[in-house]
Measured scan of single mutants.
Amino acid sequence: MAAAAAAGAGPEMVRGQVFDVGPRYTNLSYIGEGAYGMVCSAYDNVNKVRVAIKKISPFEHQTYCQRTLREIKILLRFRHENIIGINDIIRAPTIEQMKDVYIVQDLMETDLYKLLKTQHLSNDHICYFLYQILRGLKYIHSANVLHRDLKPSNLLLNTTCDLKICDFGLARVADPDHDHTGFLTEYVATRWYRAPEIMLNSKGYTKSIDIWSVGCILAEMLSNRPIFPGKHYLDQLNHILGILGSPSQEDLNCIINLKARNYLLSLPHKNKVPWNRLFPNADSKALDLLDKMLTFNPHKRIEVEQALAHPYLEQYYDPSDEPIAEAPFKFDMELDDLPKEKLKELIFEETARFQPGYRS
């Protein structure tokens, strides 16, 4: 834990890192770190609560700039109880001085990944967590956004079992017609939660990839272990087919990539493993919904509104309290091709509203 900075004593240090967030945020305490930044909790002297502050230093890398800009653009436009918001952003007053960006968010005690390492969940908890994931996802999908990296560590939890989806750095506007060349190379989302079509096709992607990830998360809540822990690309596919069985001819016809289709045709026939054999203690309604989410063919996979209306979630289902976005989200430009200098300018502009004396 960093010592509390005395008023006016300059930035606090946390594990050798400068955290320049005073005077409003003090009493910093280390939480963890990701690929390009550290997260601390801090005391907000204005709202009198502890908050989470993520320090991001992305400006050396085009990919990190892209992810940072995506996350900020999306989260500043989203407003939903099951999606983490941005409360404040701290950065230098000029673009030349801006080396880091500090993002202030609600402090959540833990995440689903940490929880599943230590606790076996009751059916009631599984049901409530799944409902909140789908409630947040309904809003995301209504904005025409794909999260693309749903996994237990991106689901934040607090002691009252509130759940918030975080990390929109890989999110995209849904565009089933656009052929994202190089899709697989830039697709760094965790393999275990990846839909089979991501490994088999490169053309376009749809909201059904997020539903697949939610199915993987439900299976993990039922058993405290990942359902498809593939060691590499082909191993991942083999794990999936080992449980779902061989795809039907109709399902194979959806695979545009001939090499991928021929690979699947070359494999020995596998039978589907019954879900109640894998999860003998699970609620039968939970397994019915799991089956509809972990469907090989993305066109037959359940959609988020149908999933919310499934009998497993009937005690929570309330369409009048499951809000959607006001308007579909649009990125003005494809960020993939922009140089990091341009992305830095866009991050600077996007964060201006939090600067003292800002006038829109």
Rank of each mutant, 00 (worst) to 15 (best):
L290W: 04
L156W: 03
V214C: 09
S266E: 12
L258C: 12
G10M: 08
P268D: 13
A307R: 05
L107D: 02
H239S: 08
Y102D: 02
F296L: 00
S153I: 02
Q66E: 03
I256P: 14
P152R: 02
P11M: 02
A7T: 08
P323L: 09
P152D: 04
K285I: 00
N87E: 13
Y131E: 12
G230I: 12
S153G: 13
P93W: 14
E349N: 15
V214T: 09
D175N: 03
I84N: 00
T351W: 14
Y358C: 01
H147M: 06
L146M: 07
I324L: 04
L278P: 12
D100E: 02
L116T: 13
I209S: 02
I347A: 12
I90L: 14
T159C: 04
L76S: 14
C40F: 04
D288W: 10
M108T: 07
I243E: 05
L107K: 12
Y233H: 00
L150M: 01
L184Q: 00
L346A: 09
A282V: 10
D210F: 06
R67H: 15
S223T: 01
A4I: 15
G182P: 03
N271H: 05
V51C: 09
E96I: 13
P229A: 09
L184N: 02
E109A: 11
H178N: 01
P339L: 03
K114R: 01
M98V: 15
D235K: 04
S208F: 07
I89S: 13
R277G: 05
Y131W: 15
E12V: 02
Y233C: 03
A35Y: 06
D162F: 11
K54S: 05
R70K: 04
N154H: 02
H269I: 13
V273L: 04
K55Y: 07
V21Q: 05
Y43I: 13
N276F: 13
D177F: 09
A189F: 03
L338M: 01
E349S: 15
K300H: 10
V14S: 11
L294E: 04
Y25K: 05
V101P: 08
L264S: 07
E334I: 15
T68H: 12
Y131V: 07
T110G: 11
Y193Q: 02
F228Y: 00
C65S: 00
H299P: 04
V173N: 04
A286K: 12
R79Y: 13
A325C: 14
L244G: 04
A219D: 03
R70I: 08
Y25P: 03
V39G: 06
S122T: 14
L115A: 11
E96V: 04
N281L: 11
A189Y: 06
P323A: 11
S153N: 04
Y30G: 13
E71G: 10
A6R: 05
V39T: 07
D149N: 02
L267T: 10
C166S: 00
P226W: 03
H310E: 12
Y113K: 03
I89M: 12
L258V: 10
A307C: 15
S29A: 12
E350Q: 13
L343M: 02
N158P: 03
N262C: 13
A4V: 06
I83S: 13
G10Y: 08
K330F: 14
H299E: 07
V39K: 03
Q97A: 09
L241F: 08
N262Y: 01
D332W: 14
K151N: 02
K300G: 06
I240D: 05
A4K: 14
I89D: 08
G85N: 15
L155C: 11
K48L: 06
K48I: 08
R70F: 08
E250W: 15
Y43R: 11
L218M: 00
A35Q: 05
Q97K: 02
A195Q: 03
A219Q: 01
R148G: 01
I227R: 05
L244E: 05
I56E: 11
Q306A: 12
L237A: 05
I74L: 07
P229Q: 09
P152C: 09
G215P: 01
G10N: 12
A7P: 13
E250P: 12
P23S: 10
H180Q: 01
K272D: 11
L69P: 06
S122P: 11
P229I: 04
K207L: 04
K117L: 10
H299R: 07
Y43T: 14
R191W: 07
G22S: 15
I347G: 05
D20N: 01
A174K: 11
L170E: 06
T63V: 14
I84Y: 06
S202M: 02
F296V: 06
E220D: 01
L137W: 08
A286G: 14
L115R: 13
P247Y: 07
V273N: 15
Q66C: 04
H120F: 12
L258Q: 00
H147P: 04
S266W: 12
T190E: 02
E326V: 01
D167H: 04
I126W: 05
R172W: 05
S202A: 05
D337Y: 00
E33L: 14
S284E: 10
R359Q: 12
I240H: 11
E349F: 15
Y25R: 06
Q132D: 06
L155K: 08
T110M: 09
N87H: 09
D20S: 09
E220K: 01
P229H: 00
I95E: 08
E322H: 15
S248G: 11
G32S: 01
R70D: 08
I227V: 08
K207H: 07
K151S: 08
Y25V: 12
K138T: 10
C166P: 02
A9T: 08
A174Q: 07
N82W: 04
G10F: 08
G34V: 00
Y102G: 12
L115N: 12
D124I: 13
L218R: 04
G8I: 13
Y205E: 01
H239L: 01
H80P: 09
Q132I: 05
N201C: 12
R70Y: 10
F228R: 05
E96N: 14
M98S: 14
P268E: 08
I83D: 12
I227H: 03
